[in-house]
Design a protein around this nucleic acid. Sequence first.
DNA 1: GCGTGCCTTTGATCTGGGTCAAGGAAAGTG
DNA 2: CACTTTCCTTGACCCAGATCAAAGGCACGC
Lengths: 246, 246
Amino acid sequence: MNTAKIEFSECGDCPIRHRAVCSRCETDELEQLNKIKFYKSYPAGQTIAIRGEPLQNVASIVAGTATLTRSIEDGRTQMVGLLLPSDFIGRPGRDTLQYDVTAVSDVTLCCFQRKPFEKLLEDLPHVRERLLEMALDELDAARDWMLLLGRKTARERIASLLTLMVKRTIRPDGEVMGNSSRIELPITREAMANYLGLTIETVSRQLTKLKNDGIIGIEGKRAITIPDLGALLAETGDDEDGGMIV
Amino acid sequence: MNTAKIEFSECGDCPIRHRAVCSRCETDELEQLNKIKFYKSYPAGQTIAIRGEPLQNVASIVAGTATLTRSIEDGRTQMVGLLLPSDFIGRPGRDTLQYDVTAVSDVTLCCFQRKPFEKLLEDLPHVRERLLEMALDELDAARDWMLLLGRKTARERIASLLTLMVKRTIRPDGEVMGNSSRIELPITREAMANYLGLTIETVSRQLTKLKNDGIIGIEGKRAITIPDLGALLAETGDDEDGGMIV
DNA sequence: GCGTGCCTTTGATCTGGGTCAAGGAAAGTG
DNA sequence: CACTTTCCTTGACCCAGATCAAAGGCACGC
């Protein structure tokens, strides 16, 4: 998808930049991190890691979209995390992953061998601090998602997801979106359904309903236009302040 | 409820013991923490904190049960966390809370003023490390709950909750439960419903169904007996290994 | 003992979203 | 260009769980 979009330089000298630490890292700290980092790419659709298998590396997403899913044998699947560039995979202090990680688009990771990384952490307070912040942000996001899964209607769920996508699309260039915007859904209907706790049929139906109501426009399979962001926001079921954490 | 059960000495010299740091803290580190700690109690039903209001303190639960909930104006409410003794409330680096915190039973908190606590954190690597661990555990728990909310049937949800309760009941004395056991539900049907993304009627119906199927016994309103834990586990919809993180 | 509330159970009915089934549409492939 | 394959949409029908409504307990104060 956009593997090539983010240059090496964007990932920067410090490999877990973006939401991560590096703005606060000292040069020598970066040196240490750089010594154990390496890049790895996965084509769209490929499994990056499977629940329960020992985890060799931790990584930061440089480009592409990956998903974190949890499922039961009978096939029911729930996405529990959407990983966009700057998100972190894996966790210090755990040697197995609790979830399946899958590349949705072509994905490039900036990896660190877990053991050395953990050892390094002890000397890198900035990184540890940033990891805590990120974990807490993810926790908030997960909890917001719990409200969605437990209490929201199908239409509200779709609207919430689109809102989330818009918000997360803003970030890379730091540009603030106007009232109207256009997003490329980085995921299939199936992934959307798994994220929202719905079926693909319901996702499809609600999308067309939102289109018919003039809340969104649909261009092809993946592009959504949003003529009035406020109108979409009003469909999410959230409080005005738009509590959803991205 | 059991306010008196946990003695001051159990909370120990280090106030965020239990799941928290203190086993690894040095004596002088404990000293520092103790200087800014104080206890606070809330009767059952009382609101401990409201979403959005500035957060003065962080705290560790010493006794009782509290809930973390997120809700929308129209009354829909989703519980996003069940706080039992040893759990932590609040987060360093955020000055407002994202959720409502409510005492379900009588609750005793071990509080720290947030600002001094945050400053202290800089010098207490053990505590920071432990906070990260706890955040990651909570994240895993939240994600497991997402699977429940997104994909499980009402019966599976009830069974999962009971299983969770059993597992969390074990901890305080470290005693391993036998195959059969008895738990006191610390929460009302309404709280269960809000936790599970169901209505109280459905919760009630599924509980009686499980009773009629011999999976559980119901004694009064709050006590549940589980003659065969394996049978209950089989109803949760989870993999055999019982992946649920407590 | 007798209300008065609160929580819980049970019943009857309704409905949002699931399930099953049948077509499109776009992209690749030989 | 026909021929899969993959993804998406649409329709018809169904059912788990929501909603609406009515009783039980049980604990409390008077």
